[in-house]
Design a protein around this nucleic acid. Sequence first.
DNA 1: GCTTGACTTTGAGCGCGCTCCAAGTTGTAC
DNA 2: GTACAACTTGGAGCGCGCTCAAAGTCAAGC
Lengths: 144, 144
Amino acid sequence: MQDSGYTIQDMAKRCGMTTHTLRYYERVGLIQPVGRARNGHRRYSEADAAWLNFLHCMRATNMPIREMQRYAELRELGDSTSLERRKILEDHQAAIAAQIVELQKAHALLTHKIANYKKIEQRIRIGGPQVAEPEVDCSLAPAS
Amino acid sequence: MQDSGYTIQDMAKRCGMTTHTLRYYERVGLIQPVGRARNGHRRYSEADAAWLNFLHCMRATNMPIREMQRYAELRELGDSTSLERRKILEDHQAAIAAQIVELQKAHALLTHKIANYKKIEQRIRIGGPQVAEPEVDCSLAPAS
DNA sequence: GCTTGACTTTGAGCGCGCTCCAAGTTGTAC
DNA sequence: GTACAACTTGGAGCGCGCTCAAAGTCAAGC
């Protein structure tokens, strides 16, 4: 038996998910029913691989499953849904941009705090005066 | 009655959390028992505000509650835990850097896909040939 | 024939981080 | 006095996104 295509294991490895997740995605309609070998086992195509990679990329950047479902649904409906699909992607891109900004703020804050810890450790080492530094104020925009 | 300090509502607004979350954080030891007014209501200090802002900043960048608990615990133990606390922050900073990389990759991918949608829409508008573009491969590093 | 292993299905379970509910207390305004 | 609003508590509930368990099928190797 070969019935060309990737096995579920292959696919899991190839797009960084578990087999559980692959079946789950199929169950909830994120991917159309996958082709089967004669023994009933799933066989993923290259097109499946590309789509799953895309899904993985969206999930990894915190797109909710619901939104991915909506996108997948529109995709099934063909080109006429282009505008709406584009809007979803544009919104998500904006969300990503906002996340990047927050992460960068936190990154900068941590650089500051880590430097402060180094100072404290230095003072301990030379037995100098130990003055606690107050928590740095870190106001971020409302979380996404 | 005044019993100086921020009320739980004030504090919630000030650091972008709900009152539920503030009580929850206290319950799980992320913040030491907060001072009380004579009627038993919480009154938050400036120091509480700074610490809560820091916690919010860490949560907003996906630090797990468990790790925040560990950090809070060490903080209670004083300067001798400086090294370990610094390690936590450094690790989290690295995690943030990794997240930024993933987000940037996804952002770039979306720019590409959005441009492609615009092309499709153009073709539809002029009634030209409609050729579906395959899903772009988007291999990201293993998710954080 | 029997074992092994990779798959199949349905449906339940779980960890996280809140979020909410019910019942009670306190202080202020009318 | 009585309504109202803002708080208190303990504990239950929930949405998300998986994750796993149980029981079964199928093909290959010994």
